[in-house]
Design a protein around this nucleic acid. Structure first.
Lengths: 339, 339
DNA sequence: ATGAAAGCGCTAACAT
DNA sequence: ATGTTAGCGCTTTCAT
């Protein structure tokens, strides 16, 4: 790796001059010098040393993509198809803006804070953080930062977020079930925070509107950590006759349950209806094809980066909290009871 | 962000001393000083500036994960479930060794080379590179480097790779089909290079061994770029009566074809048998469940990092080319013809 | 047990 | 049009 200084010596010119032509500040440099420098640049395949550059400047060209996981409930974040679609879109877009992508996951918020200052990242995309952690992040990091799929405490801080109208989505699909004649609708989730909590709010609103009583008894929890997961699915199976429809908080869960049901002789959707949320590939692929709410994770990733770049360039962000709309996709897992 | 120098000034001690206690070189430092420094470290939540550190040292603590994609055939690399499982495992393992993960994708090999020297990464994990590019990488980058799922030219260079016994896998599943009485077996792929080429070799070997003639006519190509993809699937459908079984080079393709078939009234496996390769979630989920070769992408990622760390630490790598074994998973998409 | 000082490669303000 | 210089924060050699 050749350095600016070395090249300067070769031509017999100062490093400032070389630096200037590298950066196209070529108005005040003679044509000859420019050519000479460009030759060397080619010949020695000059590449800037980012560490040196970053030390000298106050930015870094690094965008950190961070995720705080929970050992007990999360599998590997990146391996989750939904997350990886977001991440893939984020990477593409970061690259398009000529930044570099550093991903950093940790169980500890402190690690994440340290990561950010240690590398002096230019901006941060934080995926799936819960309200309290968002608060701490915002308070302790004075950097451009956009959240994906977060909900926030009402603390007066101005968060930038890209998410989904989760409540509306939960409402829409529940209403659809109700319109199909369903009344005993279970809500199946693994937690009630953030995104999932919002979907539950929508679920409740639709029931209420239809005059259907809301009962915590219809709330079934899945245990995503490996050992108990099968058991919690089995539990849904055991209780399934109490319901005419199941609202699963994600396609992933819906499909897991469908398979368990199918393998145990339950007929879908004749014996029971089931809907998911997300519209992932598996739900499209499985038969009967899953009725669900479609969202577009790639767009989330795309928009997150676009918002972040605006923040980095100190531009106005028109909408602090972008909430994409989910779309009902009717396929074949809901039985129409009232025709 | 407080600096070493600032802390040194506060205590009235040199920055060397502060640096020493930060790095635990505390044998030659008085207890008092150690305590004072540790206090400040705590108080000001000192975090090292990685850019400065990296400039001063010759390493960087960055591991680059690179992928050279092809706009025409690849979708987003990270979004591919198979790739993202590898990537997820890589990230976990990099973190476990306290390195940082920078991902960098490009269509241009040159960009990747520049990326590597620009950031002075300590090591490289290169996923899915083709032989000629491996050669160039190896020639132009003098850094620890491990490949995932690569095959190499016989050029005398010593590559470190983590892959799969693809040929053996192709052989095993073809043999299984033959044992079930199949003779007209199509091989379905999108290209014949590297991994897929090796699987094809295994396919041919099994046919040959059984005295079944090998014909290029049984080789069907899928076009993964969006527009023509549907058409190429349709083509498989049109020709399916020529075959009693289809060997798809990936589960992804197998499932796509299954769905097309099912939606067009073809009975699986009664009308035609189909097998995949990989054993991904969709193949497990779809009904009938897909017969396939299982491989373990997480283990690939894990091993790739382990190998790389050994290289970085200049340790002996026992096995230059780790080839994991794929395992036949018999499920329900192959009809037994000879019972 | 502690410090001084040079240097990593680059940038940028200021001369000339 | 080109050069000088200080400095970014840290490491490391060599003194003391």
């Amino acid at each position: 790796m050749i350095t600016i200084k070395e090249m300067a010596n070769i031509i017999g010119v100062s490093s400032t001059t070389v630096s200037n032509v590298i950066h196209g500040k070529t108005k005040e440099v003679s044509k000859e010098t420019v050519e000479k420098v460009n030759e060397l640049l080619e010949k020695y395949r000059y590449v800037p040393n980012m560490n040196a550059r970053n030390l000298a400047k106050k930015d870094s060209k690094i965008i950190g993509v961070v995720y705080k996981y929970n050992k007990n409930t999360d599998n590997n974040f990146i391996q989750d198809p939904f997350a990886s679609e977001i991440l893939g879109a984020i990477e593409v877009q970061i690259r398009k803006h000529e930044y570099y992508t550093m991903i950093y996951l940790s169980e500890e918020l402190d690690d994440i804070l340290r990561f950010v200052s240690s590398w002096n990242v230019d901006g941060l995309i934080a995926v799936g953080f819960w309200p309290d952690d968002c608060h701490i992040m915002k308070k302790s990091i004075a950097k451009p930062m956009v959240f994906v799929d977060s909900y926030f405490n009402n603390d007066g801080l101005s968060y930038v977020n890209v998410g989904l109208k989760d409540k509306e989505g939960g409402y829409d699909i529940t209403k659809y079930l109700i319109q199909c004649g369903h009344k005993q609708i279970a809500f199946i989730t693994d937690c009630m925070v953030s995104v999932y909590g919002a979907r539950y709010e929508g679920y409740k609103e639709a029931l209420q509107e239809a005059g259907i009583p809301i009962s915590e008894h219809n709330l079934l929890f899945l245990k995503p950590n490996h050992k108990e997961f099968e058991k919690s699915i089995e539990n849904v199976y055991k209780r399934h006759q109490e319901f005419s429809a199941l609202f699963c908080v994600s396609d992933y869960y819906a499909v897991k349950i469908m398979n368990y049901f199918i393998d145990n002789g339950v007929k879908l959707p004749d014996d029971i209806s089931i809907v998911g949320f997300d519209d992932n590939l598996i739900g499209q692929t499985i038969r009967p094809a899953l009725t669900t709410m479609r969202q577009n994770p790639s767009q989330k990733g795309y928009l997150a980066v676009e918002q972040l770049i605006k923040l980095i360039h100190q531009m106005e962000v028109e909408e602090n909290n972008i909430q994409l709309t989910a779309q009902l996709i009717v396929r074949n897992t809901v039985k129409i009871l009232n025709k």
